[in-house]
Amino acid sequence: MASNQIQPRLGNTGFIIFLALLSAFVPLSTDLYLPALPEMTHFFAVPEIIMNLTLILFFIFYSIATLFWGPLSDRYGRRPILLIGLTIYLIASILCGIANSATQIIIFRVLQACGGGVATTVATAVIKDVFVGRKQETTLAIVQSMVVISPAVAPVVGSLLLTFISWRGIFFAQALLGITVVLGTLIFKETHQPESESMRLLRSFGRLGVLLKDPGFTALLMVFSTMSIISLGFISSSSYIYQNTFHLSSELFSLFFAFNALGMLLGPLIYIPLSKYVDRFVIIYSCFLLTIIGGILVLLFGLHNPIMFALTEFPATLASSAIRPPGTYLVLKQQENDNGSASSLYSAGGTIMGSIGMVVVSVAEAYPVAAIALINIIIGAICWLALWLSMRGLRQQIKI
């Protein structure tokens, strides 16, 4: 870490925790209220697909918002943009908690997504601002391993809260998260020198197009973003699979989900030491293969039993999270400037692809377990082939 970029008030440990909280906004904004989705569906007397719009539209507008927040943070600095976005998230969380209809919930979740989109984008840009080389890759892995604790903890906390309060309290808990990160932002030291006043805002947004014209950046962006179909498809359907298909209570759902989330936690933690001895591309291709194997195992053994489903889905959750640190590192390595814009495109790409996964499992709500299995197999194979073709055809353009 460069000497002029050390966080004097947060400290090194506090800095990493702050980055992890920012990066965890998506899982904390979804997984915390996953156990309440069936209750909310019943409360508002709407079909599952309508209540699933609170997830699907969240991710769609989250991805759109990230495309704005990244260039804005390049133009005006990370800290002021963080404060604006997080304040919007905080207000929207409170509005979700006092909503009186499914329509209001959907609208306020869209607003929540627009504000929350600043978090992951700026967190990734800050890591690129401050760290270089292997330190950057290992920091990404550490932050992301802390991030995936939230999918394990959030449903458990959400189920626990539901034993004392209604679903509305879940959104007030998200508001408390917003307050916490706003306070962290107030003591955060800026890591990016804002662009000069002569740099027009439209030109800053134009950097998105410049990056997309880079074939190496775009190829890797598409490959690693597509893997989000697997993780977000599972996350969005998990409460319905365990509670409606397998008829488990919300408390038992949270425990089963926590087991699968353990794979998300172990992925980056396993990658850090393994990458010292094994080439990152060998690890990446192996993770694609493991995802395919997991999907086949679900089809063979996990269709009718929650325990077997959790066990056979575990390889896919492990592999999809282990790919994140090297994938993020490789995508960001394709450019040396425009960290905010590159982070925006990476966040947006993953969220858009994840939204596709959520739509697919929603449409296949009659056979959600089989849908998850097929997604693992098909997406794992597509990403394996796409990366192989990209590395073969763009060998000179891709920086490794």
Rank of each mutant, 00 (worst) to 15 (best):
L269I: 10
L269H: 10
I270W: 15
I270Q: 06
Y271G: 04
Y271I: 08
I272A: 09
I272R: 12
I272Q: 08
I272S: 07
P273K: 08
P273A: 06
L274E: 06
S275M: 12
S275V: 12
S275I: 12
K276H: 10
K276P: 02
K276C: 09
K276S: 12
Y277F: 13
Y277P: 11
Y277K: 14
Y277I: 12
V278I: 15
V278K: 10
D279M: 11
D279N: 14
D279G: 11
D279F: 10
R280F: 12
R280W: 14
F281P: 11
V282E: 11
V282Y: 10
V282F: 10
V282K: 14
V282R: 14
V282T: 15
I283P: 08
I283E: 02
I283V: 09
I284E: 08
I284P: 06
I284Q: 07
I284A: 04
Y285T: 06
S286G: 15
S286R: 09
C287D: 13
F288K: 00
F288L: 00
F288V: 00
F288D: 00
L289D: 05
L290K: 12
L290F: 07
T291V: 04
I292A: 09
I292F: 06
I293A: 02
I293H: 00
I293S: 01
I293R: 01
I293M: 02
I293F: 02
G294N: 13
G294V: 11
G294C: 10
I296L: 14
I296A: 10
I296E: 06
L297D: 03
L297E: 03
L297K: 03
L297A: 09
V298D: 00
V298G: 00
L299P: 06
L299H: 04
L300V: 08
L300E: 08
G302T: 05
G302R: 03
L303G: 02
L303P: 03
L303I: 01
H304F: 14
H304V: 09
H304I: 11
N305H: 15
N305W: 10
P306I: 03
P306L: 04
I307P: 08
I307N: 14
M308S: 11
M308R: 09
M308G: 05
F309N: 01
F309T: 02
F309D: 02
A310H: 03
A310L: 05
L311H: 10
L311T: 08
L311D: 07
T312G: 03
E313D: 13
E313C: 13
E313N: 15
F314L: 13
F314S: 07
P315I: 07
P315T: 06
A316K: 03
A316V: 04
L318P: 04
L318S: 05
A319E: 02
